[in-house]
Design a protein around this nucleic acid. Sequence first.
DNA 1: TTGGTGACTAATC
DNA 2: GGATTAGCCACCA
Length: 103
Amino acid sequence: MSEPTKDQKIWQVVAAIPPGCVVSYGQVAAMAGLGRQARYIGRALGKLPAGHDIPWFRVIRSNGQIAFPQGSDAYETQVGRLKSEGVEVTNGRVQMRQFQWQP
DNA sequence: TTGGTGACTAATC
DNA sequence: GGATTAGCCACCA
């Protein structure tokens, strides 16, 4: 493993998100060097291995909404974890506390 | 190779 | 503020 795959790069970026902060898929894509490939982020998160330490719940849409339909399992999990970190979530909307990415 | 697909985004109504 | 449309681009069968 000399060259990390894009998926791993994404996971690394997501793992670098500090607690209490959230970022949009587009932001993660830019951080990982994927440009506008925001859709790939969701796919990479869906390929997360078991036992990971990736706070995927800190990744939301650009408009500050959860990427899942309200009432779904993943949705409630994400909201629960965000609230646990001090992030306010109301009506499927997240209080956008984006952080400055330091390359 | 081709075509279908998506945890997206921005613009428009 | 919510719903719809079109654009985008890498991955997978």
